[in-house]
Design a binder for these strands. Structure first.
Lengths: 210, 210
DNA sequence: GTCTATATGGCGATAGAC
DNA sequence: GTCTATCGCCATATAGAC
């Protein structure tokens, strides 16, 4: 094994320079945004010189795009077990909501990067995001929506399910300042149960539906 | 009336320099973010010199904060007629959803700025946002939630209502790339009706609720 | 593959004339 | 109240030694 300078680790995995740069870039782009992060800052964080970064990436934009792809890779696998589970459609929904909530809550950098990308709304990158990463999940969710509510528009239902989870995670820091906040509102299982119940049953109890 | 150089207008209203600066700042901060917009760019957009901006604002950060306040002012009034209307709780919800969807769709800069602020999650500014702008609306929405679903947690229900509307608007550019997309999914009234129906009745038709 | 040194230009902010 | 001119700094990116 060749002698290697220690740059960064993820858990017990020792990263090479390019991986270290991408790893730090994900964290810092998520935190500061594209123009908020300078190559100097990134170089310092990665324990390298600016010139070393330019050895691996032609310019800042290419580095950014590769960091995005790196952060988004492998997310599909997480939902595979939800779709493969043998259970009722209602239970599948509950598991999907919980899984999505989990991913967004735990991989904070992923959520932040996604937010920034959607806000930027660059059509080319939107397409990359939609086709390359989310399309399959959306399609499976639409099938579930069809099963649960055949008389509703499954595209809109799927979009709403994702929306309610996404924004719940996003608005958590803001909601802390609103009345009625309780400690259990920070627990993923409590939130997941609430959202699932709301999606399945709605607000009005059966009997007094308008 | 003193002779005045024409800097900017909103409709038929002629703006003075400070108003022009704030007006352009809202648009450009929403588009590019704090570090993405330079004072030079802002000065050019406002048809003034950089030094003129510094005549009105001590530094870039103070300008940003004042722009935020300026953009957020007067939003409460829009919802007043929703709450004052004499109608059923279900109809009130429908009107609130439509109004919120309308504000976020039409005042794109407002929505972008809000998004960036929440993502930044600066506690001091979160507090300003929550207390100064949204608290009253959230409180009234909680009362409505209590009326519609007394057995559910009204804080979570209110948060979910806002979440579903907010994220629906935000994710529109992304959703365009997903299967099942139809032209009417761009119409505010269609989306509002879908969201209201989903919130009131949920996914499962009455009878086969788990 | 990584460094130091540097080119070139934009940044926030200020001085001082009008 | 607005300008031109300028400061000092940091940005992205490159050249060339090791």
């Amino acid at each position: 094994m060749p002698p290697e300078r220690l740059l960064g680790t993820v858990g017990a995995i020792i990263l090479n320079s390019k991986e270290t740069i991408l790893n730090k870039a994900i964290i810092l782009f998520a935190e500061k945004g594209y123009s908020g992060l300078s190559m100097r800052q990134l170089a310092t964080a990665a324990n390298l010189s600016v010139a070393a970064i330019y050895h691996y990436f032609p310019d800042k934009n290419a580095l950014y795009l590769e960091a995005i792809r790196f952060a988004f890779s492998g997310k599909e696998r997480i939902f595979a077990q939800v779709w493969e589970a043998e259970c009722s459609a209602e239970e599948k929904l509950a598991r999907f909501v919980h899984a999505l909530l989990d991913v967004m809550t735990q991989d904070h950098n992923f959520h932040c990067l996604m937010q920034r990308e959607i806000m930027e709304a660059n059509p080319e990158r939107m397409n990359l995001l939609a086709q390359g990463i989310f399309k399959q999940q959306f399609y499976l969710l639409m099938q579930l929506a069809e099963e649960l509510a055949p008389e509703q528009d499954s595209h809109l239902v799927s979009a709403s399910i994702i929306a309610i989870v996404d924004s719940t995670v996003k608005c958590r820091p803001l909601n802390k300042f609103f009345p009625g906040r309780k400690p259990e509102h920070d627990r993923t299982d409590v939130i997941a149960a609430h959202i699932t119940h709301l999606l399945l049953n709605g607000l009005t109890s059966r009997g007094n539906v308008q």
